[in-house]
Write a protein that binds this DNA or RNA. Sequence first.
DNA 1: TATGAATGAGCCTTCATTCAT
DNA 2: CATGAATGAAGGCTCATTCAT
Lengths: 199, 199, 199, 199
Amino acid sequence: MARVGADLRRQDFVKATVKVIAEHGVANATTRRIAAAADCPLASLHYVFRTKDELFYAVYESLFTLPQQSLDQVPAGLTPSETAAEMLRQVVNWFSTNPDLARAQSELFFWTIRNQPEMATKIYSVGVEATEQALGRTIGNRLDPAALKATSRTLILLFDGLLVAWTAHGDLERLKAETETACQALALLVSSHSPAPGS
Amino acid sequence: MARVGADLRRQDFVKATVKVIAEHGVANATTRRIAAAADCPLASLHYVFRTKDELFYAVYESLFTLPQQSLDQVPAGLTPSETAAEMLRQVVNWFSTNPDLARAQSELFFWTIRNQPEMATKIYSVGVEATEQALGRTIGNRLDPAALKATSRTLILLFDGLLVAWTAHGDLERLKAETETACQALALLVSSHSPAPGS
Amino acid sequence: MARVGADLRRQDFVKATVKVIAEHGVANATTRRIAAAADCPLASLHYVFRTKDELFYAVYESLFTLPQQSLDQVPAGLTPSETAAEMLRQVVNWFSTNPDLARAQSELFFWTIRNQPEMATKIYSVGVEATEQALGRTIGNRLDPAALKATSRTLILLFDGLLVAWTAHGDLERLKAETETACQALALLVSSHSPAPGS
Amino acid sequence: MARVGADLRRQDFVKATVKVIAEHGVANATTRRIAAAADCPLASLHYVFRTKDELFYAVYESLFTLPQQSLDQVPAGLTPSETAAEMLRQVVNWFSTNPDLARAQSELFFWTIRNQPEMATKIYSVGVEATEQALGRTIGNRLDPAALKATSRTLILLFDGLLVAWTAHGDLERLKAETETACQALALLVSSHSPAPGS
DNA sequence: TATGAATGAGCCTTCATTCAT
DNA sequence: CATGAATGAAGGCTCATTCAT
């Protein structure tokens, strides 16, 4: 093994872990398998991460930050309703494009809830806030804070629901249809909070 | 008598498994622990269920049909929008009243997806259909089939999203607030599909 | 493996453990080696003893009781001094005849002191009392209790010292010589507490 | 400077090892812990001592010579009996004042016996001779060589026995009482070899 | 020389499952 | 039928040591 910085090594293991979890599930993501996926001796894993849990926490954290990056890829100039709907489309698009990551994230969420509930809660709330802020950046001035919060939370609700649904049926077409319905519901919700357009 | 004894035993194990999963998580729901919770010798478990997987499938199935029973506890005489919203309230009420079962269900869902995807898919779709039918029984004649399907699916989306959210933050008050927002979104969706009331 | 009672199995493992400790030392008495010595699968060891520690405690206890059995093989009709000296000779004879057991006992003593001090203390004191009682049975009426206690404790002091010495030099002849000197010192101590013979 | 630095480092590691052994036991005296106790990088340990064994031998040697320094703190002008007894008191006093060192010494003795028996034997015999010589310096001319040897060996026997006893019960008062009895036995032994005082 | 990085070997323990009674 | 006894396979982790800089 080339002598690389510890940080680089950490990233390798995190990546390998995501891969293994996606392929075999958290339950079967053993240290041996992860080490093999990273093409490293088992002991090296424990040199970089003291315990398997520590590794998993790192993975969970890194995974939970990913989908939020797609929140800002929404074009400007849309109405609030259209903006919220488009955001939902974007994150759904993210996970349907990265099924492995999405799957791993879901399972790791429950794993972390069991093993370090406070951490899971904290990271979840960070995600919620990030969503709220992204929404606020785009349409904040056109929606009162309470409506903003309600909208972002519902967006996340629908996102998680769609993730579960897609996990269950695995049908991409159906996912798209359901996403559109969800977008519609979300848009209606935003509209009900917004002043009538043009008025 | 022998038959009955065996069936009773199955139920005992299923119950014990739910309890153990709720308390320790699927990952730590070992056969030993389950047998202990059922107050039975370990070998008996394998006498009744050939493998641990077989037991878990049975548990998954039994768990997944539970929340649907709350779908029919919706009063008559409501508008379609109010009916859908009330249904969502009912199922959320179910899982907030039975946190153990809800938690176990979530985890088992992902477990089954890994170990017998087809079965998980099938049971999920049974759940979806049950929801659609319950909705249809109440407001079917006032909503066209496509709208009915969209509504029931969105209901499930929101349900799953709320379950995840509650699992993450564990705050009952917040769950209630989020549920109301979700109900509002759902009601708006139904309204948009319904003919204007009174027209 | 024949289905034998759990107690029999325990004894097998205890025996095997003594053998392995004698041969490789406590530090290298691994569960694998012990299982191999007992000609059993590794998992069987953990079926009978929950942990390695539990096994070691059992071994320590069984070992500590052994040398005491040689305390009663002292002929009657001796003077108190001769009796005490003869007892010391007997226990030294025991460990020089069973070097493995003696060695294992010494090492396990320190191991137990580290891992379960109270237990080590308790078992040690049981040994002390057994010695005192054996001495009392033979010459109790010819020695006041305080002298009896002092004698038995000194006997044990010399016993432990001789065990260490023999462990260090491994010279049987020298052990015998040292034992005789020790017996002499012990006898003199007893005499100093006894009424002058013949007086 | 370089030389001195290296030697200093050796001493640091030896000290740290004693501390770690006293605190955690030989079995848990890992190189990592020792390096940490010495506040040095792990690799440095192997830079100064080729192997862990080499380090432990050095520690064993340094520890074994310590208690002998207390042998010469015996006042002059005592009878041979009193001198021998006082010597025993002194060494017992040493280890009861330095329980850590005494504990570490005991454990290291058995460790060395396992890993390099010849060395352990040699160092033990050096200790025996040092005792004999210290005794000889004080009362050599008043005791024939054979008696001197017998006395010094018995002194060591009692010393080791008392160390074991104290390790087992940890009761300082009891240790003192047992020490006095041992001193008495030792004194009687010396007396029996000495010409009657004043004759 | 000095040390962070890396690792092969091995340890204790647990698990789902089967066997023998 | 029912169950105590038994086990192959695997898992997470640690250790003394060496490598590369």
